[in-house]
Structure formats: structure tokens, C-alpha cells
Design a protein around this nucleic acid. Structure first.
Lengths: 150, 150
DNA sequence: GTTTATGCAAAACATTTGCATAGTC
DNA sequence: GACTATGCAAATGTTTTGCATAAAC
């Protein structure tokens, strides 16, 4: 069920995901998909709306974002200050390395945190049903470009 | 720098933490400290306010909660639905096992997640500066009492 | 007497909802 | 034509802010 199909652009992937779920293809949704496809990093609902023509209703933005999260095309990202952002989702369940300097994010792979958590929880008599993890720091680029504090 | 001093009650610990930081001892703050000390589980700012006399201003509640988080007496807890709650903080940095059935929470101890994250991040060329982790599931009590789905 | 804290009201935000209209299938 | 989606405006809910007053040190 991976989202990455053939060589579809992000915009096309979004539209296809909606179509697959039986949602109608409308002008506002196409506009939104294109706007999301252009994002370089995680964004907020309001931030996205500000990049759209003002004729596109606020409610449509929120409703569509919710659809896309449910469809697995987008995922939510929690910033350190508690701000809720969105970004394209490449995999099922995964975590992010969020650069607090440039705002970029990469997927955290090769990390078997799930197993560790399940084992530790069990030791507490706790039956794990889900978790939320965000990792903050400085990305390779920012370190190499001296943007990180010396 | 642990907060757990002698045999102080939660309320006393809160007041002492404020005093140590040079904040003034006022009636509203004492009322708030007492109300927080009585909480059985994590709570929201508004929920707490509803338990306080209406003469205690909304702004005072929010301002004091922020102070207490900065002072390390309270910590923020993010629920699965994105709701931000607060609860007494027992340790420096730690994580919570949050029961989604009864709302209780216990600290996640004996988990060396920090090391695992640091190692994995490093492999990505990422310099870790912080992280946010919440674990959701069913606590021992809820499982034993059959509150968890069969 | 200075300085800090409070309470109130208003402002600022983000998100949701009702509903008549318009657009898709 | 039936059903879904949209846009608007208003409602909701939370958190923040300005400011004059009151309280603490």
C-alpha cells in the first residue's frame, strides 16, 4: 500500500489517492493538490490557505487536509512549540527528524523503536496501542553550513 | 535537581518551586497550587479553570501554568487527539505511558530510548537536540478490569 | 515606594459547522 | 437528477494581550 507510485508527482499522487477513495475531482481540490505538491517543507493549514486564491474557502482547505490525512497522503507533524504542521507522507507509520534550523525533515529509518517501546511497556503491565514521536535537531546541511551554533 | 523534596505535598512543591525562582507568593497562586495538587490525572488549562473560583482570572491561570512548566513542576502531555494537557512532573526529562481508557499515566522508566535515537540520528547525519514522545495504550488496571476491548 | 501580579475585557487565532448554492458523476 | 462539495459567515474554543488596579516585597 505504499503511496509512491510509478513516477507520479506529489500533486498527481494526491489527486489519485482522492480518486481511489471515491472522492470527486473538483477544481478546488486540484488547486489544493498543486499547492501542496509545491511545498518544500511542512506547512500549516492557515499557511497553505494564504498561498491559495482567496476565493477558495477556508472550510475547503481544512476539510481537504483532513481527508488527505485519513487517506494517508499527508501526515501531521508536531513542532517543538506545539504548532501542528502537515507534510507529504511517504510511508505508513514512521517518524521524522525535524531540523529546527531550516525546517527540513527527513524520515527516521532503521530505527526499531516500536519493539523497544513494546517491550518496555509490557514490563510496566502496559499494553501499547500507539505512540507519537518527533525528533528535533540539526540536519547535516545546517551543520556543514555553519548554521548550527558553534 | 529532583523536585521530590522531603515529604512535601504536590501543592507545597509547587509553591516552593515558585518561591525558589523569586516569584511572589500570592493568593491566586496558592489557590492554583492547591487545585493542581488535587488533580488525579492530566488536565487542561480550561478544565482547571472551571474548577477554580470565577474570580480567578483566566489570564492568571494561563500565565501561572506557563511559569510552572518553565520551572519544571508541570509538564505538557499531548493526547492522541492533539489535546494539550498538563500534569505534575516527577523527573527531569521522561516520557509517559498514557492510558487511553482511564486517562491515567505513568512514567516510562527503564527505557534507553535516548541512546537509540541519538545513534540512529547520527547515522542520518543528524545532530539530535530534543525529542517528543508519548506512548498510548491500556494500563494494567484497565486490562484486569476488562475495560479493554476483548 | 517599587516592582510584580491580577482581573477584566478585548483581541487574536485556529478550527468547525450550518446551510443554500453550485458542480460532479 | 441525485448526491457531493463548496463558499460564506458565524459559531466555537483556546490562548494571548493591554492596561488600570491591587498586592507583595
Amino acid at each position: 500500500m505504499a503511496l509512491k507510485k510509478r513516477n507520479l508527482s506529489a500533486t498527481e499522487q494526491i489527486l489519485e489517492a482522492l480518486e481511489e477513495r471515491g472522492y470527486r475531482s473538483t477544481a478546488p481540490r486540484r488547486t489544493l493538490a498543486a499547492a501542496i505538491g509545491v511545498q518544500k517543507r511542512h506547512f500549516t493549514a492557515e499557511g497553505l490557505r494564504r498561498q491559495l486564491p482567496p476565493t477558495l474557502g477556508r472550510a475547503t482547505v481544512y476539510r481537504t487536509l483532513k481527508l488527505l490525512v485519513e487517506a494517508g497522503v499527508l501526515c501531521r507533524v508536531m513542532l517543538e512549540d506545539g504548532d501542528l504542521h502537515y507534510q507529504l507522507s511517504h510511508r505508513g507509520h514512521h517518524h521524522h527528524l525535524l531540523c529546527v534550523l531550516c525546517g527540513s525533515s527527513q524520515d527516521l529509518t532503521g530505527c526499531d523503536i516500536e519493539d523497544l517501546l513494546a517491550a518496555t511497556s509490557a514490563r510496566h503491565g502496559f499494553e501499547l496501542s500507539g505512540h507519537w514521536l518527533e525528533v528535533y535537531g540539526h540536519c547535516r546541511d545546517c551543520i556543514q553550513n555553519g548554521r548550527a551554533a558553534a
